[in-house]
Design a protein around this nucleic acid. Sequence first.
DNA 1: AGATAATGATACCATATTAGTATCATTTGT
DNA 2: ACAAATGATACTAATATGGTATCATTATCT
Lengths: 135, 135
Amino acid sequence: MKLITRDSDYAIRALCFIAKSKNRIVNVSELTAQLKIPRPFLRKILQTLNKNGLLYSYKGKAGGFELAMRPNKIFVLKIMQIFQGELKLNECFLKKAPCPNVKRCKLKKKVDKIQEYVFRELKVVSLSYLMKKRA
Amino acid sequence: MKLITRDSDYAIRALCFIAKSKNRIVNVSELTAQLKIPRPFLRKILQTLNKNGLLYSYKGKAGGFELAMRPNKIFVLKIMQIFQGELKLNECFLKKAPCPNVKRCKLKKKVDKIQEYVFRELKVVSLSYLMKKRA
DNA sequence: AGATAATGATACCATATTAGTATCATTTGT
DNA sequence: ACAAATGATACTAATATGGTATCATTATCT
């Protein structure tokens, strides 16, 4: 089971690279060369990031992408939400009718608690944090 | 994303029901009637639990299943491992070559920390715990 | 103006995982 | 012998994941 899927992972890497290229416009060719991510897949990912307001894009020759906000305002959790939807570890329980009995409620409570923990931990991870050299 | 898949969930419910039916052999018909789980799917699940040593099974007329150990020795984490494999939240990172750079390592460390937490939380959840009436 | 090089939009495809079904063999109590 | 239970195993359906492919649009450069 993956907490972070491939597209989220690629998005994080691409955003970090773009973040490091301050005040420059970065295009897909440069990104694929550096990150070894399949070009058409990366294009789709960047377009999604653009639609969701994390990137500005520029069309035409010499076009490309740049961050739409500062790296300390871009969080991994947000990226995961874009590509993986809202974080819900207890999906299989919610789809069902209300808990038929006590045991399921107790299990659901555990999972809810875990989910809150994951949320808290990931909420604070920004691009800046990921790029810092030392802990 | 589901932390607990459908088969694990069904397995937990079935085991709880069997646990409540102390010193009795419970058959599939009774379980499907009570738990509303598709019969052939439940059969497969019970067979898996038997192979993994959580249930004893009895063939032939008047056959069925009973717990192979006490409910306080059967843990949700074990059940998840049987149906979902070892808990590894960081799969997508491990499949890749060693972290290409610092940022990925920091993200992996976060995910590792989360995974340890999930492990600790689920490790202690037994059938007995789930069946207790009050917290 | 036209060629070129970039992204935008969208539809399609491949693979893996999840969630089951179906069937026949074997065992056991009556 | 028969009926009622599980064992073993192969198959199928639905969904999620990880991509490709193609054409439209826009901007720059000559």
